[in-house]
């Protein structure tokens, strides 16, 4: 660390011009990098849009998959994704927020809370397909949920849990200590303080983080394939134990086929998926902007 404070004399500019040229080279490289990044995003969106927008119509949204690409649709996938994400939210939201409250408000600074903390950070970095393997053994085989909506939602819940915990903790930490102290001073218990003071203030932040976590879950494909979500489903899910498909799986299935028509379908389904994501993110940003100012 010592060396940081000390700039070698050799590297100091002897001529100002040299420094200026270096500056120019760096700035133009950075500019190229920025333009490249933005260009990739634009090209990606334009490419998908151009491929799929003509296929997008009411029939596409309300039809079941078919062997003929022009008759196929994404109804089962869309409803499957909606059910899956709702169930996942039901499981993951209370558990995640509960864990965040525990870690921020209750846990003492001892080895156990340190272990939990490191463990959560680690889980956030485990590849999603590994969660799929866990879901396959634990939910599909051992708990005999079979390849059902419930098994998919449980797997997804475990997958998004670390993200929810991390973002909820940040939101809870942002609530000033003075508010808790004021609450304790008028005789509130710890839970009353959390329930009536901390949570209402932290809630917009928690909600924003959670929505972003679920928008990630909606696009997640690998774990669902591993637990065996079907790729050809011509019915709507009827209950928790019903087989299901989801939008990204439908896209994957269509992309893997050689026929041109299915590739077009994939592009159209991608547009739908991106619109759903856009809406979810817009809601998250709206919540953030709306409540951020009111707080402090």
């Amino acid at each position: 660390m010592k060396g940081l404070y000390h700039i070698e004399h050799r590297k100091m500019p002897t001529r100002r011009r040299r420094g200026r040229r270096g500056e120019w080279i760096f700035q133009s490289m950075a500019f190229v990098a920025l333009v490249f990044t933005i260009a990739v995003l634009v090209v990606l969106l334009v490419d998908v849009f151009r491929d799929g927008v003509l296929r997008l119509n009411w029939q596409f949204l309300t039809s079941f998959p078919s062997r003929k690409p022009e008759l196929a649709g994404i109804l089962a996938a869309l409803v499957g994704s909606a059910c899956l994400i709702t169930l996942t939210a039901l499981f993951a939201f209370p558990l995640g927020v509960g864990a965040a409250i525990y870690l921020e408000e209750y846990a003492r600074k001892n080895w156990l809370s340190r272990v939990i903390e490191v463990n959560i950070a680690n889980l956030a970095g485990v590849p999603s397909i590994i969660y799929g393997l866990l879901g396959l053994e634990l939910f599909v085989r051992m708990m005999r949920m079979d390849r059902s909506l419930l098994a998919g939602a449980c797997t997804m819940a475990l997958l998004v849990l670390p993200i929810i915990i991390i973002s909820s903790r940040e939101a809870i930490r942002a609530v000033p200590v003075s508010i808790r102290e004021a609450s304790y001073a008028v005789g509130a218990t710890r839970w009353q303080t959390i329930r009536y003071q901390v949570l209402p203030l932290a809630f917009p932040g928690i909600l924003t983080g959670t929505i972003l976590a679920f928008s990630r879950a909606i696009g997640e494909t690998a774990p669902l394939i591993t637990i065996g979500a079907l790729t050809y489903v011509a019915f709507l899910p009827t209950g928790l134990f019903s087989p299901f498909t989801a939008l990204p799986i439908q896209i994957f299935n269509w992309v893997s086929r050689p026929q041109k028509g299915f590739l077009t379908n994939a592009a159209a389904a991608i547009i739908v998926l991106l619109i759903v994501l856009l809406l979810m993110n817009a809601v998250a940003i709206w919540l953030r902007n709306r409540y951020q100012k009111k707080l402090y």
Binding site: P248, L274, L277
Partner: peptide, 8 residues
Amino acid sequence: IPTVVYGY
């Protein structure tokens, strides 16, 4: 952006 989209 979901990874399937990147795959496409």
